[in-house]
Design a protein around this nucleic acid. Structure first.
Lengths: 194, 194
DNA sequence: GTCTATATCATGATAGAC
DNA sequence: GTCTATCATGATATAGAC
């Protein structure tokens, strides 16, 4: 039986993952570095060796999740051609992610980090959200989506689905989101289709 | 010139209003009781005379704003007959309130209090949101809104407008929301109308 | 790189005069 | 009811051994 040896990367990831779990459960402010220490079974010193402070943990987590989300959306952009198919796939992926990694979705979409990290841009100014707006813009140009302001139309298209995500994360909805994708998407697309 | 005398009610209201302003600016956790004391120009003792603690201030604020919102929606229920008109008026009122009292809307809709007050129900389980769902339910029964799950349809109907509110509060949208009511509502209603 | 022990500080809350 | 002065707690962060 091989002896497992912890690499620095393991510890860093352990800290990040533990933090995400605790942040999601109790909130960022209610989670102390001591909590992370206890839950992860490591020492304070080790945490402060990997991160300058709690701020840095929150920031690293946010950037990591945002990058993951960006990759996902860029992949969709290449794989699908029409605005309809692209946007639908975005919603589908978010619905799936909400089920198997609710902590990550809560952290990114609920934008809890904003209260903790001052002078940070709101999530809707981030690259992934810009890409989603671009999808809508392309759809308008292509005549798939009705003419009008892209920001407004993006809000109307994704507003319903994102609201469903919030409700699901808050435990209001019993059924898994992917099961309800067709119904939600039908409504969402009707709102903006040309 | 009459001498103004501060009544207890004044002080209580002063505390609540100051708290709301600070909570909105810096977040609940980043606002200390000392901050409220300084901004309101009163003493710590006075604050703790009116409220048992910071928790109580947050709770009182939340309940007050929620009650105000409930009154508003119940008024709409009586004044309008069809689901279409009722729901549209709800959106219109929220849009207006977002402009003239953004702090209140941010506090209630963003649900910041949840992270501070543990074991508190999420905002979407609150009475006003239930009333909005009832409006949708009635609309389904009346044949104005397509058949289906009321929760899902309510999310699809109000999701877009609420997203617009978030964007406006985050400073993403330059134009006042009421100016965009017609466009937003057209999209929202198309999503769910029978 | 990881640990323990500790310094420093801000916060929520209280006591008691007026 | 309002005030000032103070306490007690728990947080972030650091120092230094191993």
């Amino acid at each position: 039986m091989a002896v497992e040896k912890k690499t620095p990367l393991d510890t860093r990831a352990l800290i990040i993952n533990t933090a995400l779990k605790l942040f999601s459960e109790k909130g960022i402010f209610n989670t102390s570095v001591q909590d992370i220490k206890r839950t992860a079974n490591i020492s304070i010193g080790s945490i402060y060796h990997h991160f300058p402070g709690k701020d840095a943990i929150v920031r690293a987590l946010y950037e990591e999740l945002l990058a993951k989300m960006q990759d996902l959306i860029e992949g969709i952009d290449q794989q699908y051609a029409s605005a309809h198919d692209r946007c639908r796939e975005v919603v589908r992926q978010i619905f799936i992610m909400t089920e198997y990694d609710p902590d990550a979705v809560r952290f990114v979409l609920q934008g809890r980090h904003l209260e903790f990290l001052p002078n940070e841009q709101p999530i809707c100014s981030s690259r992934p959200f810009e890409l989603m707006k671009d999808m809508v813009r392309d759809g308008i140009t292509a005549g798939e989506i009705q003419g009008g302001d892209a920001t407004l139309l993006a809000a109307c298209l994704f507003g319903g689905p994102l609201r469903m995500v919030s409700l699901r994360l808050d435990g209001i909805l019993d059924r898994p989101l992917p099961e309800q994708l067709d119904d939600v998407w039908t409504c969402a697309w009707r709102a903006v289709s040309a």
